[in-house]
Design a protein around this nucleic acid. Sequence first.
DNA 1: ATCAACAAACGTACAGACCTGCTTTTAACT
DNA 2: AGTTAAAAGCAGGTCTGTACGTTTGTTGAT
Lengths: 214, 214
Amino acid sequence: MIKRRTQDERSTETRRLLQEATVRSLMEVGYANTSTSEIARRAGVSRGAQTHHYPGKMDLIVAATEYMFRNFADQLEALGSDLRAGRLDYDSFFDALWEEMQHGDWFYSSLEIIVAARGDEELRQHLEPLIMVLHARFEATWLRSFEATDPEGLGPRPVMNLVMNVFRGMAVQAVLRPEPRYFEEIMHVLKTMIAAHLRPRTRAATPVPAPPRP
Amino acid sequence: MIKRRTQDERSTETRRLLQEATVRSLMEVGYANTSTSEIARRAGVSRGAQTHHYPGKMDLIVAATEYMFRNFADQLEALGSDLRAGRLDYDSFFDALWEEMQHGDWFYSSLEIIVAARGDEELRQHLEPLIMVLHARFEATWLRSFEATDPEGLGPRPVMNLVMNVFRGMAVQAVLRPEPRYFEEIMHVLKTMIAAHLRPRTRAATPVPAPPRP
DNA sequence: ATCAACAAACGTACAGACCTGCTTTTAACT
DNA sequence: AGTTAAAAGCAGGTCTGTACGTTTGTTGAT
């Protein structure tokens, strides 16, 4: 009745459980209140198993970050693909992206880690390459999905960086401001400004995008 | 040789030392590594004096936050005043604001606190009113300093919120990205986009703002 | 194919460090 | 003198890193 697994399967599973538990813990109680024992408890593995795979707290955090970044880049890629295929229109793309940042796992757990890294040189050095990889994937998706309306004007890449930073800032604000009105206004301003410089590269025969579903 | 001070002066001085030390500690080592003993050591007061004025860690954090927010709002007010008086032009105003966020005490210590508040209901409730007061002051300064180019178009208030969120996002990014090029590009995009909708209310004779330099 | 020997994965327990809040004393001011 | 501010020390709790024992899977010689 006992399922037999190879060593590799056991390791992979345990690592995955720990990575997911770490992300969940960062999301729910933040970096400061995330302890290694708490993570082991959440993951349902013993503290010994944990230290076997990840000797120190930092190893755990870095592994979890890598896992989480990969997931988010995949999701963004999916959104971009929906936009290009005409399954999402311009407006809905931004709404979906903002929704994902606000309520998905990604933003707040990465925020916790980034803030923690500010005071921890070693952690920062481990994280820097991960962030760069993530942003390279963002950029690739974005450039596939948007083009400049005016070749002489602002290009898609700097505009993307602006957009991502607006969302980052908004998500930070959202911690202490519950008013949806505030964010709707900003979204409106952002969409208006962007629309003057970029348009989506849809593959659809008709360049008219489908209307957003309510 | 011992200077005689009233009780009130002694209290005020000790409180100020503790508030400043708290902000410095948040800046340098982050919320997670900020301990009450460390703060007392930095402030040069005993732990007893500390607990006398601020019984718990939260009281200390809240007081320091209030102190710091007040300072930042004052600085922003000064920048706005410089802009209106023509001592700063459009471009330099944004550059100065970004410089202040990046290298001043304000942003990163508030970031630490906001992030900590995400996982701490009580702290969040103490902070929310402080943030609202701060933003009301931002808004007042901003509305005194900018007006819409087109009365039918985007108003100064929503645009300000966009700008502040861009800066917030950029400052978070700056933790892990040292490249000034990245930020210069975004600043350029931001200035270009804003210039289409707002102009400074200078008291100077010529109301024409300088165009952003590439 | 079997079984012993080895290695990897996992479980339990503990020691040292640190941090917070509280209590008791001493000093300063009114 | 009496009250408030400041200093010093202690108690309880938590967290991290580590040591050591146990189980599970792998290997290879017979």
